[in-house]
Design a protein around this nucleic acid. Structure first.
Length: 259
DNA sequence: ATGCCGTGGAAACCACGA
């Protein structure tokens, strides 16, 4: 079973790229972030015609998350994280597919830091960590994937010194990610490629993609039972080079579901 | 060191992203 995550940066603006990627790489499940579309403007029909069912949580202009599945039932288990009734940003959706709980998340950027946006990022992170603890405790197979807006270590950024004051790389952010992993989750990419330079995002400007001036900020966290089933993981780098593409590239894992 | 690019939405600019 191949599960992918992709920050599309506008699901309607990127629809040709999204459909081409789905067609060429055929993930069984695709978690999308940054739909930038209200609930009623999600391109459900085009995605259905591409062979995918979908659930989504839209929002006007910003944020928005979706889970797509090919020839599989999607049982929605949650939309929005618990812990703050006031939070109306569409950043989390969760479903059970083939017995796996899949959380699709778009963690706040947090810049500029310090400031209210960074405080929101840390609060949201804490709510995610609390919810992750509940999921972990359940003992079920769980995937927590999406755009974490976290550069976990200096190996995950082309030039660490440029990012030391950035919300994606500040010690509090990295510590929050470390605390989350400390519950027992596995960072799938780092499990398989502990020392390779692997990026999932490149800025649009300064020729960042051509220079490979990237960041690794889209992550796959696996619960222990799924870590044992991890067959492969990777980044569809070439998608970042397509016309009218997102500034993120898709990331994927393959899980052995044979037993 | 930097929003230099790109999106969406409102309004012909602005907020936001990482």
């Amino acid at each position: 079973m191949k599960i992918a995550t992709y920050n599309v940066n506008g699901v309607n603006g990127r629809l040709p790229v999204l459909l081409r990627w789905l067609n060429e790489t055929q993930p069984d499940v695709a978690c999308l972030q940054e739909l930038k579309a209200p609930q009623e403007k999600f391109p459900e029909q085009a995605i259905r015609e591409a062979g995918y069912r979908a659930i989504w949580h839209g929002q006007k202009s910003w944020n928005g998350v979706a889970i797509l599945a090919r020839e599989r039932e999607i049982l929605e288990t949650r939309r929005g994280l618990p812990g703050d009734e006031e939070d109306i940003q569409s950043r989390y959706i969760e479903a059970e597919i083939d017995g796996i709980t899949i959380g699709c998340l778009y963690l706040p950027n947090g810049n500029p830091a310090p400031g209210p946006k960074f405080e929101y990022k840390l609060r949201w992170f804490q709510r995610l960590t609390d919810h992750a603890a509940e999921l972990y405790k359940s003992g079920k197979p769980v995937v927590l994937t999406g755009d974490y807006n976290v550069i976990p270590t200096e190996f995950d950024v082309y030039k660490p010194e440029r990012w030391v004051k950035d919300a994606l790389f500040l010690p509090e952010t990295r510590m929050a990610f470390k605390t989350l992993l400390g519950q027992g989750w596995t960072d799938a990419i780092r499990k398989l490629y502990p020392e390779e330079k692997i990026y999932t995002f490149w800025d649009y400007f300064r020729n960042a993609y051509a220079r490979d001036a990237g960041l690794r900020i889209d992550h796959f966290l696996l619960s222990p039972s799924l870590e044992k089933r991890l067959l492969a993981a990777g980044v569809d780098r070439e998608v970042r080079g397509w016309e009218k593409t997102s500034d993120h590239a898709p990331v994927w894992v393959k899980l052995d579901m044979s037993q």
